[in-house]
Design a protein around this nucleic acid. Structure first.
Lengths: 141, 141
DNA sequence: ACGCTTATAGTGTATATGCACGTTGCTGCG
DNA sequence: CGCAGCAACGTGCATATACACTATAAGCGT
C-alpha cells in the first residue's frame, strides 16, 4: 500500500495545509488573528453575505462549521450578525474594529504570502489552478 | 485586499484540503475510518516508528496533535503503543485488527483516489510536486 | 554520585471541522 | 386557512490541530 503514502491526494493536501497554515499563523501571531480568521474577515468584508450559507459555499466549508468558526470573531467584536434581517437569514458584517484589525494584519499577510510564493517551483497560476481544481465540490464546478 | 481572496495560498490550500478530505471521508465512511486515520495507519504500518516524534515529522503534523489523533485509533484497538521500549521512546504498531481494517478500507480508498485524480487538469506528478513544495517545513527540505 | 542538558512524551486550552439531527420562518398548494 | 415542504440556522458529539507548558528518562561532565 505504499501507493497511499506516495499518491494519496488527501494526505498530500492535508499535509500541505498544515504546513502552510502554520507559516501564515506564525506571521499573523502579533495581530491575534489566525490565517483562517483573517481570510474569513476579508471574505466577509468583500462579499457582505446576506446568509451564512452563501459564505460557506464560497469558502468550501461546511455551513455549521463556519457558524462556529465565526464565534471567536464575534466574541472579539470583529464581526456582527444582523438580526433585523429578512426573516431567517442573518447578514454578516465586519465591524469598525474588524476593519482596523484587517488593516493591521494586511502587511503581515503580505510577508507570509511573499515567502510562500517564493517556495513555489512553478508559476503561481499553475498552483492556483491545481488548488482550485482540488477544491471543486462536484461536477457543477 | 481582493489580493487575499485571489492569491492567498493558505486560503486555497485549506479550502482544497476541506473539499478533498470530505470526499475521501465519504468514500471511507463504511469502514468507520476517516482519511486521516487511514493514512495514519498506513504510515505506521509502513514506517513502524520507534517514536511519535519521527512519525510527526514525516506527516508534517505537530507532535502533540499527532499524540491526540492517535487516541481514537488506540481506543478502537487498531494501533498500540509499546511501553517496554528503550526508555522514553514508545514505538507504535498497527495491531492485527488494524491490518484487517486497512485491508477492508484499501479498495474504497482506491476509488476515492481514482475519482480525485480524474479531476486533475494537469499530470499527477505536477500536482504532487506542488503539494510537496507547499508541505515543506523549512530550508532543510 | 550529582546535577545539567537533551530527548521524548503528555496536558491545558483554544480553534477548526464535519455529520446527524432539531428548530423556525416562509411559501405555496389543496 | 392549514399544513407540507423548503430554506436558513443552531446544537450535540466527535475528531483534528496547534502552542505553551510540564514531566520524566538518558546521557554526560566533573
Amino acid at each position: 500500500m505504499d501507493e497511499v503514502g506516495d499518491r494519496c491526494l488527501a494526505l498530500r493536501t492535508l499535509s500541505a495545509a498544515r504546513a502552510v497554515t502554520r507559516r501564515y499563523d506564525a506571521a499573523l501571531r502579533p495581530t491575534g488573528l489566525s490565517i483562517t480568521q483573517f481570510t474569513l474577515l476579508v471574505a466577509i468584508e468583500s462579499l457582505k453575505p446576506d446568509a451564512i450559507t452563501s459564505l460557506a459555499e464560497v469558502l468550501c466549508i461546511e455551513r455549521t462549521a463556519l457558524s462556529r468558526t465565526l464565534r471567536p470573531l464575534e466574541a472579539k467584536g470583529l464581526v456582527e450578525r444582523q438580526e433585523e434581517a429578512v426573516g431567517r437569514a442573518k447578514p454578516i458584517r465586519v465591524t469598525a474594529p474588524g476593519r482596523r484589525a484587517l488593516a493591521a494584519a494586511y502587511p503581515l499577510w503580505r510577508e507570509a504570502q511573499r515567502d510562500t510564493e517564493a517556495r513555489l517551483t512553478q508559476p503561481h497560476a499553475e498552483a492556483a489552478r491545481l488548488l482550485y481544481t482540488l477544491r471543486a465540490e462536484g461536477p457543477k464546478y
